[in-house]
């Protein structure tokens, strides 16, 4: 009995290792065989992996759908911009920044970590209120939180540049940097899921009342998960800014919220493997369709999808997956090595 338990714990650790291996193979393949635009697409995909796995830490373990994580992403992205942009640029475009931020010219790595920390602190404060709610009321409150952050970032002219974009961020987030962060996030997600807090939180997901009766403080574990999860979504935001070089509040609103949730649900909300699978599968399909829109040559004739068809096809694929496999592609199972005898 004790033996099997030990084996199970060990085999649970094979999940993140296998997933990271998949990410590394994906990145190598793209870099070896792809062109420059494909490498950029790989970086975007890995940023989405960081974000969706970060989102999974909270949503997957607690079962509460959060619409608010794009807000943590925005907070991280703008924080990194404040810390790393050249002071002359900030003086010109963001004149109302506090002196400390206006003169800051940090290295990009500590800036990314601090951006994640800021998102985590905001999550601690907002979560302390929002997570007192349960079920659909909690989801709505995260929605309201997203709308609050969006309104502030798109109206605070002198600090965030409002709806005119912030430009000139160093574009350091290539596929290798994002691979490192995505791997770190997968590892952290597995650590959290296998920790006592993660197990307790999953117990509340399965049966709130039974977990409560077993002495689990649901509020506390949800808050811990939210803070951890916000850190990584904040980092994903910082990477996003440094991959495109441009920031606009509209990139962190309903569009990204829904596409990332869709990736999570299509892959399978119940497992870490599902989160990674969803991002990779949907990103690859999107890239293929974008290329098909530009035109694919079959011998003499060029075949091209009409512009805009890509979104429609993606939507239809999402609906089909949800109808045919309601628990997502992975059905809530983890990819893991089987150690020893069953």
């Amino acid at each position: 009995m004790a033996q099997t338990h030990k084996q199970k714990r060990l085999s649970a650790w094979s999940t993140p290792i296998l997933l990271i291996a998949i990410l590394i193979v994906f990145t190598f393949l793209v870099t070896l065989f792809g062109d420059k635009s494909l490498a950029r697409m790989a970086a975007q995909t890995l940023i989405r992996v960081t974000f969706v796995v970060g989102l999974w830490i909270f949503v997957g373990n607690s079962g509460v759908v959060s619409f608010g994580h794009a807000a943590y992403m925005a907070i991280g992205a703008y924080c990194s911009a404040w810390l790393t942009l050249r002071p002359q640029m900030k003086g010109l475009f963001l004149p109302d920044l506090w002196p400390f931020l206006a003169n800051a010219e940090w290295h990009v790595f500590p800036a990314a970590v601090v951006s994640g920390l800021l998102a985590a602190i905001v999550a601690l404060i907002s979560g302390a209120a929002i997570l007192r709610l349960t079920g659909i009321a909690a989801s709505i409150a995260t929605f309201a939180f997203l709308a609050i952050v969006y309104t502030i970032y798109s109206s605070w002219e002198g600090v965030t540049g409002a709806t005119s974009s912030v430009v000139g961020l160093t574009r350091y987030a290539d596929q290798w940097v994002t691979l490192a962060w995505a791997s770190a996030t997968v590892l952290a997600a597995a650590c959290y899921a296998n920790s006592s807090s993660g197990l307790a939180l999953r117990a509340t997901r399965e049966d709130e009342v039974a977990a409560d009766a077993s002495g689990i403080n649901m509020y506390r574990h949800r808050l811990i998960a939210l803070v951890v999860s916000a850190f990584f979504t904040g980092v994903a935001g910082a990477l996003f800014g440094h991959s495109l070089g441009v920031l606009n509040p509209n990139s962190f609103y309903l569009g990204v919220t829904f596409i990332t949730l869709a990736m999570l649900v299509v892959g399978g909300i119940g497992s870490l493997t599902g989160a990674v699978t969803g991002v990779l599968v949907l990103s690859i399909i999107i890239e293929a369709l974008v290329r098909a829109e530009r035109g694919v040559a079959f011998g003499e004739t060029t075949f091209a999808l009409p512009t805009g068809a890509q979104e429609i096809i993606i939507g239809i694929i999402m609906i089909l997956v949800l109808i045919l496999r309601p628990a997502g592609l992975t059905g809530g199972r983890e990819l893991r090595l089987r150690l020893g005898k069953r």
């Binding site: 829904f258 949730l261 869709a262 649900v265 068809a309 979104e311 939507g315 999402m318 609906i319 949800l322």
Partner: peptide, 21 residues
């Protein structure tokens, strides 16, 4: 309910992009 909610979003996405097209 979560899967239904996401598919309703996907449906909205399809309608919106058809209109755009």
């Amino acid at each position: 309910p979560v899967a239904m909610m996401i598919s309703s979003f996907a449906l909205g996405f399809v309608i919106q992009n058809t209109l755009l097209l």
